[in-house]
Amino acid sequence: MSLKKSHSVLEVKDLSIGYFLKKEQILISKEINFSIPKGELVSIVGINGIGKSTLLRTLANMQPALNGIVYLNNKNVSDYSSLQLANTISIVLTEAPSSKNLSVLELITLGRHPYTNWIGTLSENDKKIIQNAIDITEIEDLVNYKCMELSDGQLQRVMIARALAQDTPLILLDEPTTHLDIYHRAYLLKLLKKLAVEKQKTILFSTQEIDLAIQVSNKMIVMTKDKVHFDQPNKLIELGCFNTLFPSETIEFNKDLKRFILKD
């Protein structure tokens, strides 16, 4: 019987997201449906303010859904205890760590927080996982630096290493490519792809880099005002989804080039 069950790590059904403001619901986006299997890299794109971060926060149970259910390994996310959730989802946010005085190694070690005892003793296994996270993100030479001494690209890799140290099947990243130059953006997306393929992590990230996301993602969530699409990138291109993303008078999506071009 278990074979018949869906093998999705993350599945949402008829999800509505938004805020409560003075007991009044502010709806941001509705009728969101998708299902992501293990080891897939999925990107979320959409215009600023469409609700990409809100969607990620709702998935991570940092804010309640207005309607619909988020299933995490076939279990409602709101039924998870905070510790169970910490064992299942790790996050990389746009905000920098509030203490820049932490060393890189200390910061990555904090990722083991859900697993260690009350005083935070590291077992051999903890140390191995931390070292793996450092190796795969290629930050070995940074471990003794302080966060304030790092460039944006380096800090982003360190934050991803911390999420890896948390050793969760699902990783959510909110705009990991912001503030990075084109080389580091490409490097970072390739790193995410590598984690999905080699480590079988399920990775969901929001981004403004639509061109790069099309090349790297298994599937994409395209959020527009009227509808939230979910499919493989080339099918979304066929459908002409990307042309509904932005007001059409300024830029246009070229299906053959698979990228946006300026309109005259």
Binding site: A60, M62, S82, L83, L85, A86, N87, I89, S90, I91, L93, E95, P97, S98, S99, L102, E106, L107, L110, G111, H113, P114, T116, W118, I119, G120, R162, Q166
Partner: peptide
């Protein structure tokens, strides 16, 4: 003393601390 671990997690910020299971 009993909160040392959570205090360290808080160095990353509230949201990160929460995501690591800090109450």
């Amino acid at each position: 003393l009993s909160s040392i671990k959570s205090l360290n997690a808080l160095l990353l910020g509230e949201n990160y601390a929460k995501s690591m299971g800090v109450n």
